[in-house]
């Protein structure tokens, strides 16, 4: 299989979500995705990897090998895990420069923009910021 670009990955997610005609079906799918999230190892759930949301805590680990970044994460809330799963699917195995300049527009395209609002406070905003901060560390000067 040819390697997908970030853009193609986002488009693929959008077309997957287009198959669902109601909100509950979309969320059912998100919950399933949450169950498949590449989980962060328990011993890596440290304060440095913790993103405090108001409602559910999120942990993120970033690794850098062969010029590409790999992420694993966990959250107390399964819907949040599902959304993180989508984020990781889009950003995993990409180089830091690409991650930094990517506009993650699939989130609003599939109708999940409410999870990005600061009032939602589920850690997703902090999560994206954290991913980009991690990417910044590995930028090749």
């Amino acid at each position: 299989m040819a390697i997908q670009t970030i853009q193609e990955k986002q488009e693929e997610i959008v077309s997957e979500f287009e198959m669902f005609d109601d909100w509950m079906a979309k969320y059912e799918y998100l919950i399933d995705l949450g169950k498949d999230l590449p989980l962060i190892q328990e011993e890596l759930k440290t304060d440095e990897r913790l993103i405090e949301g108001c409602q559910s805590r999120v942990w993120l680990n970033a690794a850098f090998t062969n010029g590409k970044m790999q992420f694993s994460a966990d959250s107390e809330a399964i819907i949040t895990k599902g959304i993180i799963g989508l984020l990781i699917r889009v950003l995993n195995d990409e180089n830091p420069e690409t991650i930094l300049k990517t506009d993650l527009k699939f989130i609003s395209d599939i109708g999940l923009q409410e999870h990005l609002s600061p009032t939602r406070a589920n850690g997703l905003n902090g999560m994206i910021k954290k991913i980009k901060m991690e990417a910044l560390k590995y930028i090749q000067h």
């Binding site: 509950m24 969320y27 919950i31 559910s56 107390e76 809330a77 399964i78 819907i79 949040t80």
Partner: peptide
């Protein structure tokens, strides 16, 4: 076993 955030969202 279920986080309140998930129930509230659904």
């Amino acid at each position: 076993g279920i986080h309140p955030f998930d129930i509230g969202t659904l």
